[in-house]
Computed example of a mutant assay.
Amino acid sequence: MKKWIWIAVVVIVAIFIFSSYNGFVSKEEAVNTAWSNVETQYQRRSDLIPNLVNTVKGYAAHESQTLESVTEARSKATSINLTVDELTPETLAAYQQAQGEVRSALGRLIAVAEQYPDLKANQNFIELQAQLEGTENRISVARKAFNEEAQRYNTAVRRFPGNLIAGLFGFARKPYFEAAEGTDAAPEVQI
């Protein structure tokens, strides 16, 4: 009789380990997918930037410094390639900083475009600007979805008794996207 009890205990423990491990794999894959979606949106923005820069160049040739800063920021941002396995708070912060520089440079580019009434009425510029605005919204949604998946995964990794299985098989916490420094203050608009 005792033999059957031990067999039952071993079977229950094995089922728990297998189901916990498979749960962690599923949650980690959800984080990986969410990260891929974030990268896809950043890539979309990077792909749109050359078109926007070229459109503005046609109207504002003497604004070369602004155009160069946009191109440099895009180049720097696309040179940072992270996989979800390389995500640490430090690497994510560097990635966010590079993407923040792109956003800042785009803001300066849009400000330059405001100085050219013909450009503001140009259909190509209007369409590209709308695409960039939509992309920024998509980036925000993708980052939020990534954080939600990372939160689900991190919770599972930290909860008892799953944390024992997570530690045994090397499942570690994932970092979150955080707000860039200075975003807690409202931007000052000067007209």
Rank of each mutant, 00 (worst) to 15 (best):
Lys57Asp: 09
Gln151Cys: 00
Ala111Tyr: 08
Leu92Ala: 10
Arg143Trp: 03
Ile15Val: 15
Val189Thr: 11
Arg74Cys: 00
Ala121Gly: 11
Gln129Ser: 12
Leu132Pro: 03
Pro89Ser: 15
Arg159Cys: 07
Thr88Glu: 11
Glu63Asp: 15
Lys3Met: 14
Glu90Trp: 00
Ile139Leu: 07
Pro175Gln: 08
Val38Gln: 04
Gly182Leu: 02
Arg108Val: 07
Glu101Ile: 04
Phe24Pro: 02
Leu132Tyr: 03
Pro89Asp: 06
Ala93Leu: 12
Glu90Pro: 09
Asn22Ala: 05
Gln99Cys: 08
Arg44Glu: 13
Ser104Lys: 06
Ile191Asn: 14
Lys174Tyr: 09
Phe18Asp: 04
Lys2Asn: 15
Glu136Met: 07
Ala61Cys: 03
Gly134His: 05
Phe160Thr: 06
Asn137Ala: 15
Asn51Trp: 01
Phe171Lys: 01
Arg173His: 10
Thr71Gln: 02
Glu133His: 14
Leu106Met: 09
Val25Ala: 09
Ala34Ile: 03
Tyr59Lys: 01
Leu92Phe: 11
Asp184Lys: 12
Ser26Gly: 13
Gln43His: 14
Lys76Tyr: 09
Ala172Pro: 00
Gly170Gln: 11
Ala180Asn: 08
Leu106Cys: 06
Phe160Ala: 06
Glu28Gln: 15
Glu136His: 11
Ala61Leu: 02
Tyr42Asn: 06
Asn32His: 13
Glu149Gly: 10
Gln65His: 10
Glu127Thr: 14
Tyr176Pro: 04
Ala77Met: 04
Phe16Ile: 15
Val102Cys: 00
Lys57Ile: 10
Arg45Cys: 09
Lys144Asp: 11
Val157Trp: 01
Arg103Lys: 13
Ala105Cys: 07
Val157Asp: 05
Tyr59Cys: 00
Ser26Pro: 02
Ala185Gly: 04
Phe146Glu: 07
Glu114Val: 04
Ser26Glu: 04
Gly58Arg: 06
Leu52Arg: 01
Glu72Gly: 12
Val31Gly: 05
Leu92Tyr: 13
Gly58Met: 07
Asn122Tyr: 04
Lys27Asp: 13
Ile49Pro: 02
Glu178Cys: 11
Ile139Thr: 11
Arg74Glu: 01
Tyr176Ser: 08
Val56Asn: 03
Tyr21Pro: 10
Leu52Gln: 02
Lys27Ser: 13
Val9Lys: 04
Phe160His: 00
Lys76Thr: 13
Pro117Arg: 03
Leu128Gly: 00
Phe160Lys: 00
Ala172Glu: 15
Gln123Ser: 14
Asn51Lys: 01
Glu28Asp: 14
Val9Asn: 12
Gln96Phe: 00
Arg138Met: 14
Ser36Arg: 02
Asn163Gln: 05
Lys57Trp: 00
Ile49Tyr: 01
Leu168Ile: 08
Gly100Glu: 03
Thr78Cys: 07
Ile110Phe: 12
Thr83Tyr: 10
